[in-house]
Design a protein around this nucleic acid. Sequence first.
RNA 1: GCACCCGUAGCUCAGCUGGAUAGAGCGUUGGCUUGCGGAGCCAAAGGUCAUAGGUUCAAAUCCUGUCGGGUGUACCA
Length: 543
Amino acid sequence: MEQQIKNCIHSLFTTEIEVKLTRPEPQFGDYATNVALQLAASLGKNPREVAEAIAEKLRDDEDFIDVNVAGPGFINIRLSDSALIKQVYERPETLRKDELIVIETNNPNPFKPMHIGHAYNSILGDTIANLLAVSGANVKRVSYHGDVGTHVGRSMWSLLKYTEGNPEKLTNIPANERNSFMGKMYAEGSRAAKEDETVKAEVDELAKQSFIRKDGNFNAIYEIIFDWSFTQIDAILKRIGNVPIERRYLESETEVPGKELIIDNTPRVFTLSNGAYIFEGSKYGSFDNIYIGSHGNGLYGAHDMGLVQLKRQDYPQLSASYVPTGGEQAAYFKGVIAASELAIPELEGKLFNIPTGLVKLSSGKMSSRTGDVVEIDWLFDEFAKAIEARGGEATDEIIAGALRYQFLKVKIGGDVIFDVSEAVSLSGNTGSYLQYAYARARQLIEKSTAKFMRSNDLYEEDKSLMRKLSEYHEVVNLATRELAPHHICNYLFDLAQEFNRYYEKNRVVGDDREAHRVSLVTLYADILKAGLSMLGIEAPGKI
RNA sequence: GCACCCGUAGCUCAGCUGGAUAGAGCGUUGGCUUGCGGAGCCAAAGGUCAUAGGUUCAAAUCCUGUCGGGUGUACCA
């Protein structure tokens, strides 16, 4: 369509201009463009005259049933029925076809409890992976976890005290209490190390132990907790509806390749100072940072570079790599990416960090437990209670749907203010509203014996819904280009509202136009389901 | 100090590669069930888009200053 208008303008004024179509208020038309306003100045003419001339010529096009000029010089276009139907069947573009893309879809650390922030990042990564796949890419989901370092030292300090030389003691802790238990162990170690210098020294020593793992007692505990952590992580990821990963990277694997890469690129990329390897990130919008400490151990920068190296080895064809992380690491990642690109030139322009905001709870009362982290199991229970309070069945797909939607409907980057009572209310712009809207539609289809048929006719009462349906591919294009799932959410909500209006006014089963209307409802239901599935949200036919 | 991000309705947020009366949900107020799931629909009230300038035919959107908030700033990740 843009091209049609572009040609039209060219034949009138022999100028080239980028034509952008927007979706105006429905009262104005299906599409609108302001090209006339842009052209007027350079042509030295009145914008309305220019618009009128273009409109006049566009009226010859049989796809447009109505073309008019409004306001200062907008051209509003209404599509013919057949053109509108064609738009509804339009598929989203696949600009990333044949690209191999690696994306981290979760990265909670073992030896620490999994909390609401991890759930957010995991849901976001998983959904972005879906968007990449929709745009045609061959997506490889991976994960990365810190299995060594300070946090391990802190937890191990408490665990050694707790087990008193007998790792078997851990087996007494029931599975459903392990996450909180780990939280307690970690918190205790952190606090003790902060308050007491000697404890801090012990914790540091245990952190070192995590790299070498020579001690039998240490190892026995380490292995049990490691196993617990990943059992827990896998179970939660499954509950929130994430697609399983293909490869799990551990921080301990990255030390060797990371250090090697850095040393090989000194002094070309890194500078050596007092035994430490430094990257001058301040030249690249980051900050100067030490990658290998003077003690010779790789620091987090070295590990992230090692990870880049491992990914490249595992996926030699990779054309892009995405790592969603908390926004507080944005500047740091700028440095890692700059250093990686300098060290491995073939990766230039292929590494991306997606900085996300923090998850905060708006209400004071949130959980009965200690500390300030919100554990995911607790949140699941809260959702379940709310759903049951409304007489619904609290299955994981309903809970996960509500949770995912709550996170995905806001733009990436800002903090997510998570209001539990709002998320749990299940009305308004929520995942539950959409699942309910889908189930209603599905029930209509089930109730009717009419078969789906592609109709060439449209009736007046169909128009609003059809118009909304025709926007689907455009919204998906926007979302996949920007990797912004919230566009999908906003659209689906509008769509469901449009359907509910239709449903309210028009009888489907038993009407003279039953077959026609059932087909329209089917079109809608399919698109809603496809949209939800991009968000990783199930759409049951009945709830 | 320096760098980056943010400030839109009572609350939570869209809109920001400039364009038509600034949109939604929640909350508030008032309506709608004999027709397919009322977890729904309709309507009303509610905004000097932090603030002061600038650019433009046109600014929530671009530029600058100010105020307010957040994050980062070399051996923890």
